[in-house]
Amino acid sequence: MAVSPLAPVRGAGDFFALSLDVLRGLFKRPFQFAEFVQQAWFIASVTIFPTALVSIPFGAVLALQIGNLTKQIGAQSFTGAVAVLGVVREASPIVTALLIAGAGGSAICADLGSRKIREEIDAMEVLGVSPLARLVVPRVLACMLVAVFLNGMVAVVGVMGGYFFNVILQGGTPGAYLASFTALAQLPDLYVGEIKAAIFGLIAALVAAYKGLNAKGGPKGVGDAVNQSVVISFMLLFLTNFIITAIYFQVVPQKGG
């Protein structure tokens, strides 16, 4: 079949239409609470373990880099502060984005996609039940909740990993590490990290739902949809991350500047 040059534009339009419907659906009653809890549990179960495994070496690498760098420029006393800033502001949202899109989003997309090709979605509409309200809205909320939770977890694991490396392996002092926490870092760093995570969860779930609900052409179609969903949400998440960070630095005054 001929592909019209407008196809990508139409795709983006459809995606935004779906997103709007979902956002409106977030405030509609009745809310599918059971589905929400079940999905939150499911998404958490596919993401927590890999997140923990990714965040430990990620935190370690950061700590190593920062530890060496601060030694080179003679600013060891700031190691803790820089590690916290790095982890809380950037590393944990990025790790969260990778896992929420790679593990959570792909699971949502595969689930919805296989329901679509088995005609379950059509059957649901015919039975007078909106798949958006019934399936997509609880998944989007669950994905956001789990993303926020993962982000907190990565931050804690990262900071502890930094402490472990700095204090135990690189011979820093616990006092200096902890004291420098508050020197540069501030509470809004954590808030913005959590806001980022929530938005990542939202975007990853919306892309996964859009791709899943538009899967066609049998089992191979589901595979393609999952693949595209992961690639597209990675791109969107990194772009969003950049935009939010840029806005953050403009809006929130930085300490010691």
Binding site: E120, D122, G128
Partner: peptide
């Protein structure tokens, strides 16, 4: 309107 309908899809379309 859809509540008037019952539909049997090609493969049953049961919720897996």
């Amino acid at each position: 309107v859809r509540k008037l309908f019952g539909v049997l899809f090609q493969d049953g379309a049961l919720f897996g």
